[in-house]
Design a protein around this nucleic acid. Structure first.
Length: 851
RNA sequence: GCCCGGAUGGUGGAAUUGGUAGACACAAGGGACUUAAAAUCCCUCGGCCUUUGGCUGUGCGGGUUCGAUUCCCGCUCCGGGCACCA
């Protein structure tokens, strides 16, 4: 045994053994209880970052812990291979996305292996390989057959100069990020998945996701946004048409003073009178040229235009002017809103701006609203007024009564609406899964026959800054015979949103080599659902909702037999660091800042906000540097010790040292006592200091077990192991207490195994054990050893700490009270006062209330 | 703007069910060992005061309670997500 802890030597040795022996291979075995542990897979950027180190260290602790507890653990890893950065690299450096991505995958795999993560590498998959995306294409065709995938027109951000579609992140202040031209909106025919078909189930199943953080469930509920309301028809004056609106507030029906329609509403043309036409046309044109971001963005100024037409109130038969308004969206409800300025803030602002009438129809209790003096809409509860026969009802009662009345008159119906929209999956990009559709002039959109799958992404493409879709320029790809009639036809040149790949990869991991379909029924039914999913909180809504949707859709296609993909979810916080920038060179990497100055031009570096570590802001710390300096075990230990997983972690270089020092400390105490330990027997009975150490050992086993299992508080688990090590150092007569010392040290090694696997394996084998940590198993605690000899009682007077008493285990309240009275400090604080009340928490606290 | 979080010493954090605020570390200061350095070990470490004790203190202002970092109401600032959702 080396006198000093040498991580580089130990880690290399064990990683080589794991490569050969494959101890983390997962094989289906119905006789054993399975545990499927999954971390969100990475985009292969080429280098791991601290967020990965944190995410995968957390996952590996749980995987190794569960394995030591005897579970059959599936712990896979793969690559979210498609995405925009590969195409940007192609344009910036002339490298092709495919080799760029695969080289990145190779170098990231090396980095992950250096961290000693216990993956079953035989199940590795990359979504950008045809053997993965061919099955995604098949799933798409099945969804298309079932009507769960369909096409419709939808706007995109368009850069007229680059001749290309821009992602939201590529639009900066309404301008293209590359050429700064003004971004336009362009309507394109795009593919959608019918997520709304599952809206009700996606919502109701949330109640069964007991293992998810409540905050994520709330965000999902709000995203789906079920609202109960009523659709109402307002007849148009002078023609047979009517406008159908959706409202969640039928109780305010008598307060309607105008109508607001989306500028895209199909009735706009019919409604516009000749004298208003020029105003309406210019308004519609202006609104439609706005990009989606600014139309839905911050503090949109409420604007509108009068169409010149009127409609008729369904009950009072009043004339109501019809406006177009920029804040009304065609996608939600019916694209038309009844405007009630007295009780809706947007309508209030609109009415003030255009000097439209305001009527109060709900009076809150204890207040009297006055239409002329109101400064904002009253959106709360109250009693109906000015509402004909409904006056006097509470507004909640009125919602039902007025709905029923409208239904009876044939002028409305109750309706559930969802905020959730269908998922647009078309992307005008090269580096993605080709959508397996062929367009034929005669037959329309035709599915690529299953036998012709996969539609392989051609590799002989050229990238240029001139833009346009590279795929559309590949004649050999685009031109194809129609599978239906055989005439010349054209392939779809859009590819899928990369969220599609990540919506089902967790299922493919159970059978990555299966060739008879997307999913092997036997493997899927053994492993799914994922027992524990771990990833960044930034995916709380979209990725997780899409994966839930896919699970339900695949179930209904008969490919899966679970309703939900992830039983338990842990959302880790982000790794943050302050940003630095130079007026000349922009964002600076930490190593480019020397003594507070830019290393290139000597300008003073500006320290910016603390933000999530990201390549674009350059506020990143390279984990490779930490691994090569201190070793993977230290890097892992530190990232887990620094903060509990769900919290954001602000990076601090200095603290890493302490984790490294701790491991050296453990190593040294084993080295110093090696002979003693090797010759020691199991502890039988212990007394005095030995008994105390034994109590600490078993208390630590209990604490670490409970902290890891379900609570995921690895920082406190590690802290308590540190306390045990401190107690071992403090044990005086080590030679005379060898059995207890041995038990304590072997517990430390086993408890550390999930955190620092190389370190623990090495020490465990040096202590003469064979078969490694999985054979050793997770230690259990002896309740008898936890037993204290005495207990500590806190004495308070009026809630303030006045004394600490150590009493016998069986001391009664009266004993504690009597002892407290003899305490000098208690006595002094009671002088001249009367005890009014005594509060006693058995075994913990005595509070004397005096006055 | 909407939704979801967060704020505790110089720093990261702990306090699991309303019951000792600051566990465990980092940094800093002091000491031991050493020719010296590294490594290691020991001590101090929220603030204030009249220091075997007292007051005060968990972003700010209120409240409930014998007792609040913890529960309730109202703010401020910071982080994340977003599709103005009628």
């Amino acid at each position: 045994m080396d006198e000093r802890y040498r991580p580089e030597k130990i880690e290399k040795k064990w990683q080589a053994l794991w490569d050969v022996n494959e101890p983390y291979r997962a094989i289906e075995d119905p006789s054993r209880e399975k545990f499927y542990l999954l971390e969100m897979f990475p985009y292969p950027s080429g280098r791991i970052h601290m967020g990965h180190v944190r995410n995968y260290s957390i996952g590996d602790v749980v995987a190794r812990f569960k394995r030591m507890q005897g579970f059959n653990v599936l712990h896979p890893m793969g690559w979210d291979g498609f995405g925009l950065p590969a195409e940007n690299a192609a344009m910036d450096h002339g490298t092709h996305p495919a080799p760029w991505t695969f080289e990145n995958i190779d170098s990231m795999r090396v980095q992950l292996k250096r961290m000693g993560l216990s993956y079953d590498w035989k199940r590795e998959l990359a979504t950008c390989k045809p053997d993965y995306y061919r099955w995604e294409q098949l799933i798409f065709l099945k969804l298309f057959e079932k009507g769960l995938a369909y096409k419709k027109s939808s706007p995109v951000n368009w850069c007229p100069s680059c001749q290309t579609v821009l992602a939201n992140e590529q639009v900066q202040n309404d301008c293209c990020w590359r050429c700064s031209s003004l971004v336009e909106q362009k309507e394109l025919e795009q593919w959608f998945f019918k997520t709304t078909q599952y809206a009700e189930e996606l919502l109701s199943e949330i109640d069964n996701l007991k293992g998810w953080p409540e905050s994520v469930l709330t965000m999902q509920r709000n995203w789906i946004g079920r609202s109960k309301g009523c659709e109402v028809d307002f007849a148009l004056e002078g023609c047979d048409e009517s406008i159908r609106i959706f409202t969640t507030r039928p109780d305010t029906l008598f307060g309607v003073s105008f109508m607001s329609l989306a500028p895209e509403h199909p009735l706009v043309n019919l409604l516009t009178t000749d004298d208003q036409r020029s105003k309406v046309d210019s308004f519609v044109a202006r609104i439609q040229s706005q990009d989606a971001d600014s139309r839905t963005g911050d503090e949109l100024e409420k604007e509108g235009v009068f169409t010149g037409s009127y409609c008729i109130h369904p009950i009072t038969e009043e004339r109501i002017p019809v406006f177009l308004a920029n804040f009304v969206l065609m996608d939600y409800g019916t694209g038309a809103v009844m405007a009630v300025p007295g009780h809706d803030q947007r309508d209030f602002e609109f009415a003030k701006k255009y000097d439209l009438p305001l009527k109060v129809v709900i009076q809150p209790e204890g207040q009297s609203l006055c239409p002329t003096s109101m400064v904002e809409a009253w959106t709360g509860a109250g009693t109906l007024v000015n509402s004909g026969s409904f006056d006097g009802l509470t507004n909640e009662e009125a919602k039902d009564s007025i709905s029923l009345d409208l239904v009876a008159r044939g002028k409305g119906e109750s309706k559930i609406n969802y905020r959730l929209r269908d998922w647009g999956v078309s992307r005008q990009r090269y580096w993605g899964t080709p959508i397996p559709i062929i367009y034929c002039d005669g037959c329309g959109p035709v599915s690529v026959p299953e036998k012709d799958l996969p539609v392989i992404l051609p590799e002989d493409v050229t990238f240029s800054r001139e833009g346009g879709s590279p795929l559309a320029r590949v004649e050999s790809f685009v031109n194809v015979a129609c599978p239906s009639c055989g005439k010349p036809a054209r392939r779809e040149t859009d590819t899928f949103d990369t969220f599609v790949e990540s919506s089902w990869y967790f299922a493919r991991y159970t059978c990555p080599d299966y060739e008879d379909g997307p999913l092997d029924p036997a493997a899927v039914s053994y492993w799914l659902p994922v027992d524990q999913y771990i990833g960044g909180v930034e995916h709380a809504v979209m990725h997780l909702l899409y994966a839930r949707f896919f699970t339900k859709a695949l179930r209904d296609l008969g490919m899966l037999n679970v309703d939900e993909p992830f039983t338990n979810l842990l959302t880790q916080g982000m790794v943050c660091k302050e940003t630095s920038s130079c007026p000349e060179h922009g964002w600076l990497y930490p190593e480019e800042v020397v003594n507070g100055r830019c290393s290139r031009c000597d300008h003073e570096a500006r320290t910016g906000r603390t933000e999530k570590m990201s390549k674009s802001k350059k506020n990143v710390v390279d984990p490779n540097l930490i691994i090569s300096t201190y070793g993977a075990d230290t890097a892992r230990l530190f990232s887990l010790f620094a903060a509990p997983p769900e919290k954001d972690l602000e990076w601090n270089d200095q603290a890493v040292e302490g984790s490294s020092r701790f491991l050296s400390r453990v190593w040294r105490v084993v080295f110093d006592n090696l002979e003693l330990i090797l010759s020691a027997s199991a502890p039988t009975s212990a007394k005095g200091a030995a008994k105390d150490l034994r109590r600490v050992t078993h208390r630590t086993i209990k604490k670490v077990t409970e902290d890891i299992d379900g609570r995921f508080h690895f920082n406190t688990a590690i802290a308590s192991i540190m306390e045990l090590v401190n107690a071992i150092y403090a044990l005086d007569n080590k030679a005379g207490n060898a059995p207890v010392l041995r038990e304590a040290l072997e517990s430390v090694i086993r408890l550390l195994a999930p955190f620092t696997p190389h370190f623990s394996e090495e020490l465990w084998s040096l202590l003469g054990h064979e078969g490694g940590m999985e054979v050793a198993g997770w230690p259990s605690w002896d309740p008898a050893a936890l037993q204290e000899d005495e207990k500590l009682i806190i004495v308070q007077i009026n809630g303030k700490l006045r004394a600490r008493l150590t009493v016998a285990l069986d001391a009664a309240q009266s004993d504690v009270e009597a002892l407290a009275m003899t305490d000098e400090n208690v006595f002094r604080n009671l002088e001249g006062k009367t005890i009014r009340k005594i509060i006693y928490v058995p075994g913990k606290l005595l509070n004397l209330v005096v006055g």
